[in-house]
Design a protein around this nucleic acid. Structure first.
Lengths: 130, 130
DNA sequence: CAGTATCCCTCCGGATACTG
DNA sequence: CAGTATCCGGAGGGATACTG
């Protein structure tokens, strides 16, 4: 047997592991932010544009969190005016599978709702525009 | 080429998809709750015990959310006193990969922190007891 | 440009008590 | 047992203005 996920112990371990993961990745912005940086280093303002409705205050805080968890590095360039870029670390690649699975689910979930496959017509998506 | 995730358009789509996914799965409890139900149907009190520190109020709300999104079904048995079970739907299996990847990351992240591989010694885990 | 400073408010989620 | 009622603190997160 490959995954005995039905034993009590294994299940409890899984809950703990998932909770640990969520603890680091919590909030509305961390994962989308990492996706935004997946294409290479970006500057503060660029990220803000890409994430559309994030405010500088929140973006700043999220970037610090990600930096502390070693998913992102901050680089300052001595230009006038100063320019700063953020870029993913090597370690951040351990999130790739999480992001990919979220992306796949997010897309099919959207299809499901738009296609009216859900019973509840009130159900809404995060990004309103279809 | 398999995944052209570096094009602007694809990247933006990815951000939207991830945001859609997070919108449905947000919060501290939804995914752990689904893991708790992975072993088969459970009753309210059983779930509460398994998740240790969730209050009935919050558990009730989370279960309703999951029900509305068709990840969980609620079944009432006409016993005395009444008993209720919650069980995963077929549709909920579309979350398997997300949960699995979170679990894998959560475990290795825990190792990384316990092993002192992180620079910041202040870093903490969700489930405090090691 | 790259943020910080303030202000503010929703709502997540916890504590406790109670009901059918 | 399976929840609901009430109360509540605090974090998450938005708006706006401002600084080096």
């Amino acid at each position: 047997m490959k995954k005995p996920i039905h034993t009590i112990e294994t299940c409890n371990q899984s809950i703990g592991a998932v909770r640990d993961a969520l603890y680091v990745l919590n909030g509305k912005w961390k994962l989308p932010l990492i996706v935004a940086l997946a294409g290479g280093p970006k500057r503060f303002k660029e990220i803000q544009r890409e994430l559309k409705d994030i405010t500088p205050r929140v973006l700043s805080k999220e970037l610090r969190d990600l930096e502390q968890n070693e998913f992102v590095t901050r680089k300052v360039f001595d230009t006038v005016p100063v320019s700063v870029t953020y870029e993913l670390t090597e370690y951040s690649s351990c999130l790739d599978e999480i992001i990919e699975s979220l992306r796949v689910f997010g897309m099919s979930h959207r299809e499901r709702i738009i296609g009216g496959l859900h019973k509840d017509p009130e159900l809404v998506l995060q990004s309103e525009e279809v």
